[in-house]
């Protein structure tokens, strides 16, 4: 007896599961690529600069938004940017 497996429900179910799996793998790989891109873009080989910018935003929030010292906030931002750059260069020059 010859059984036509081409359109059988089992085959269709297996094909369906296969394509879902392929989709999950493709989405996973896209998400991983996206995360790697942003990690390389923001952190890369200079994690100190990323940390410095996060710290700078935190200090700026404390000074300007919490303490309402808006003028001092401007000055502290510039000073912290220069400090972060100098420290990163010092690290590179070591």
């Amino acid at each position: 007896m010859v059984v036509n497996c081409v359109d059988s429900p089992t085959r269709q179910f297996r094909d369906g599961r296969g394509s879902v799996k392929r989709l999950v793998v493709a989405v996973g790989s896209l998400a991983r690529g996206f995360a790697v891109f942003w990690w390389e873009f923001l952190v890369g080989d200079t994690p100190e600069l990323f940390i410095a910018v996060v710290a700078l935003v935190a200090v700026g929030t404390l000074v300007s938004v919490v303490a309402h010292a808006h003028g001092l906030g401007a000055v502290s931002l510039v000073v912290l940017v220069v400090g972060a750059l100098a420290l990163s260069l010092r690290r590179a020059a070591r």
Binding site: A74, L77, L85
Partner: peptide, 29 residues
């Protein structure tokens, strides 16, 4: 620096013109 400051509501002397001042400052730095 300018947009971070704007987001944090800091007071820039001269408003938008301060961008030119920041460029000059960072060039010297």
């Amino acid at each position: 620096t300018f947009w971070t400051g704007e987001g944090l509501k800091v007071h820039w002397i001269g408003g938008d013109v301060m961008i030119v001042g920041l460029v000059a400052t960072y060039l010297v730095v």
